[in-house]
């Protein structure tokens, strides 16, 4: 009993330490986001200082640019953060919708049907992820500029499929395969064709997999850098590219950058904590007798 208590204390201690280790960067970023520039660069680092919300106001474009009338003063323009945020939401939402819509059907076919070259097709999907984006970006850019997809939401959503579609197809395939064949057979006896089986039986039963796919695709899309850098332009700039605006040629705007980072992770945190509730295991336990 005593031994167990010490063990628990020790576990709690190390877990607390680990949590602090994980959370410290966020704490540090938060501190930076409420500091004025001279406090950000102060050495030794300041933990007690007069906080400011100017960084947030500036990042969101709410701070009125002060007019400097005398002398030479650096006056960086505020970043288009709000616009970038909306761009990110549109692009990532579209990407996930498209890749789940198309990918789930493809995965269903790969999981449930028998046809020629099935494994080759599945492998082809996976092979989209083999080459690093830089290997295909120049031809892709060239094609996009020619056919007018450059700097458009549709173009970016299509481009992002290279990242999210293989993931969707392979994860959903595994999820569909986990639905026991007997359930499908029972549904067939009850008069389902493959489409109703997909909609009413297999998709609801693979909800866990679907949720995982949505979360992962969204995260990958939200953090994608190379594609929007090259095939996106000034009006479709998503957050990872807008984040660069804080690195100017003459200074790095650490305060606003930290504010932007914290604002940018909000949707991820909300989205994931909301969606995690759907990650329920064992929906099919006991559905069949073996």
């Amino acid at each position: 009993m005593k031994k167990r208590l010490t063990q628990r204390v020790r576990n709690a201690f190390f877990l607390t330490l680990y949590t602090l280790f994980i959370l410290f960067p966020f704490y540090w970023t938060f501190l930076m986001s409420i500091k004025i520039p001279t406090d950000v660069i102060a050495y030794p680092p300041k933990f007690i200082f007069k906080p400011t919300i100017q960084n947030y106001l500036w990042t969101l474009g709410l701070k009125i640019q002060e007019q400097v009338t005398t002398g030479i003063r650096g006056q960086p323009l505020p970043p288009e953060f709000v616009r970038a945020f909306l761009n990110s939401v549109i692009i990532c939402g579209g990407t996930v919708a498209l890749s789940v819509g198309v990918g789930a059907l493809a995965a269903y076919a790969l999981a449930k049907f028998k046809f020629r070259a099935k494994e080759n097709i599945a492998f082809t999907f996976l092979s989209f992820r083999f080459a690093p984006p830089l290997a295909i970006i120049i031809p892709l850019y060239f094609v996009y500029v020619r056919i007018g997809l450059y700097n458009s939401y549709l173009g970016l959503i299509l481009g992002y499929q290279l990242i999210t579609l293989p993931l969707t197809v392979w994860l959903m395939r595994v999820a569909f395969e986990e639905v026991p064949e007997e359930i499908d057979e029972a549904a067939t006896i009850d008069g389902c064709n493959w489409w109703t089986k997909f909609l009413k039986i297999d998709l609801p039963l693979s909800r866990g997999g679907l949720v995982a796919v949505v979360i992962l695709s969204f995260l990958f899309a939200w953090n994608e850098f190379t594609f929007p850098l090259i095939i996106g332009g000034s009006t479709t700039k998503p957050i990872p590219i807008a984040m660069l605006d804080f690195v100017t040629y003459s200074q790095v705007l650490y305060g606003p950058m930290a504010a932007a980072i914290l604002l940018a992770i909000i949707p991820n945190i909300i989205g994931i904590s909301f969606v995690l509730r759907f990650l329920v295991k064992g929906l099919t336990f006991g559905a069949i007798k073996e």
Binding site: Q75, L244, V247, T248, Y249
Partner: peptide
């Protein structure tokens, strides 16, 4: 390039 020159001529 994000540069004071750019920031000053954009407006």
């Amino acid at each position: 390039v994000r540069h004071p020159m750019t920031d000053s001529i954009l407006p």
